[in-house]
Design a protein around this nucleic acid. Structure first.
Lengths: 149, 149
DNA sequence: ATCAATGCAAACCTTTTGCACGCGT
DNA sequence: ACGCGTGCAAAAGGTTTGCATTGAT
């Protein structure tokens, strides 16, 4: 893959996210663009706090409420994913649109992720207890990535 | 199983938990006993808030700090388990000592659990990414139990 | 021009901490 | 008697909300 191909894919992905926002009837504001850009460039789980700090570069007056409101909106639209880390705080990452349903290896140091192959709900041959109605599940593998080891 | 057998097992289990606390050099205070008793009787995930309310029956002056301090201690000693629910708040349940490592079906309404047979880390045949050092994992299945459906 | 999005401030909820007193050992 | 455990009060941290203003369409 040529070196500039990555940036091209990156821009393509960005436009796809922007289109999704507009299609859903939400305004494509600078802050929303900025959130998508940051999450897309980082490609890892980052906290609302870190996101806020990064956004202050372009929007010095931005505050937590705007960040959270947009994160909730983007999550509703399934453009980003949320995970509650060990310390109880949430972090967010851009949705990997390469796969539909998936799970992650998550680096607890830097938030970087790798896809898990398969899903325990499909592959584990589970016997769901009688009368139990499954709604959601959570499968996450935490540890240190190769860079952070 | 005769009707009183359950209570007998229950008392046996209770004593085992109390012994564990003493063995580790911690004082067996009334509040610690009460927490174990409540969690043992409930046999489901309950929040610090609910626990506090229940304990007020016996200890009207008890406050959150004591509840949390004891929950942390009991969790350190692996006598209880913690799970972060969808709303971001933690809930706690007595450790099922019947199995060592395990996962749960968890009712999001009442907190009741059922054991999951097997563990995705063992049974999924995972190929851990090169350089990734696995430390912990989380696998939980949420839904409505037969009582709450 | 319209109505959603934002900034500000304040509230909210869960959880944690410092300190002096009380209780299990 | 000793020192951990507890209550109180206050703070911390992350997240949410009401309201007036700004800005994308």
């Amino acid at each position: 893959m040529p070196e500039h191909a990555h940036d091209h894919n990156h821009d393509q992905a960005k436009e796809r996210f922007f289109d999704r926002i507009k299609e859903q009837g939400f305004k494509l504001t600078g802050k929303r663009q900025n959130i998508v850009e940051i999450l897309l460039a980082e490609d890892r789980y980052i906290s609302a706090k870190e996101l806020l700090e990064r956004m202050k570069e372009y929007y010095p007056r931005i505050s937590f409420d705007t960040v959270y409101r947009n994160l909730h909106l983007l999550k509703e639209e399934r453009l980003i994913e949320e995970s509650v880390f060990g310390d109880g705080g949430s972090k967010f990452r851009i949705t990997c649109d390469t796969h539909d349903h998936h799970h992650h290896y998550i680096c607890t140091r830097c938030g970087k992720t790798e896809l898990v192959e398969g899903c325990p709900m499909d592959d584990l041959g589970l016997t769901v207890p009688k009368g139990f109605h499954v709604e959601t599940h959570r499968f996450e593998i935490f540890g240190a990535c190769s860079d952070c080891s």
